[in-house]
Simulated scan of single mutants.
Amino acid sequence: MESQESHRIVVTLAQKARDGADAQQLADFIVSSWQTIEASLSPIIGQRSVATLYKRSFYLASREHPWLMDMHEGMQTTVNLAALKAALLERTSAEIAAGAGAALQMFYEALTNLIGASLTERLMRSVWADLFPVPTQENSA
């Protein structure tokens, strides 16, 4: 079941692409988002757990976005953001928004399934608020 918070990720990235963000800008934003997520969650659930959820998120997202398949193969205990950025820069803004948005959404959903909605919301509240603001009526149309 898709949460309001995970839907907000997709809406925000799609809006950035519609507003003219190029591949470099979106790739930088996505990598920065993952850096923030990793920094926020690693002290709580551990670097290996964050990397495992990252890997699982890209595996699930690659079902609809096959170009993401390489992002979940071969990773062990760390998140490889350099490989992610390189893969993103080979795509259009729309592809980046859709694929990376799906992976971030899957991450949120996987974390929710693992630790529950309430704890996920508390752990991710400040991260999501900074990265993915609540869309206004004007932006969500």
Rank of each mutant, 00 (worst) to 15 (best):
M106N: 10
I9V: 11
T112C: 10
A141F: 14
E2P: 03
L131D: 00
S40Y: 03
L41F: 02
A61F: 04
R63H: 14
P43T: 09
K16H: 06
R122P: 00
S62A: 12
E5T: 14
L60Y: 03
A87D: 00
T120V: 08
A61V: 05
E73H: 13
A83K: 14
L89M: 15
Y59A: 07
G99F: 07
F107W: 10
I9H: 04
S32E: 11
S33R: 04
R18C: 03
R91V: 03
D22E: 12
W67C: 04
M1K: 13
L111Q: 01
L119S: 09
D28E: 05
A87S: 09
M71N: 01
L104G: 01
Q105S: 08
Q15D: 08
E73D: 10
T12I: 08
T77A: 13
H65V: 00
L89T: 05
T36D: 11
Q24T: 12
A83T: 07
L13N: 00
D28S: 06
V50H: 00
R56K: 15
S32H: 14
F29S: 01
T52S: 09
R125D: 10
E90D: 13
N80E: 08
L119E: 11
F107I: 02
L114D: 03
S140Y: 13
L123D: 01
A27D: 03
H7F: 12
L81S: 02
V79T: 04
K85E: 11
L26D: 01
D28G: 00
L84Y: 02
I37T: 02
T12K: 11
E73Q: 15
I115H: 06
E121N: 14
Q35T: 04
M71K: 00
S3Y: 13
M106E: 09
Q15W: 15
D19K: 10
V50T: 01
A17Y: 07
W128P: 04
Y59M: 12
G99P: 00
L41W: 02
Y108R: 02
S126Y: 12
V134M: 13
H7K: 15
Y54M: 02
I30W: 07
A102Y: 07
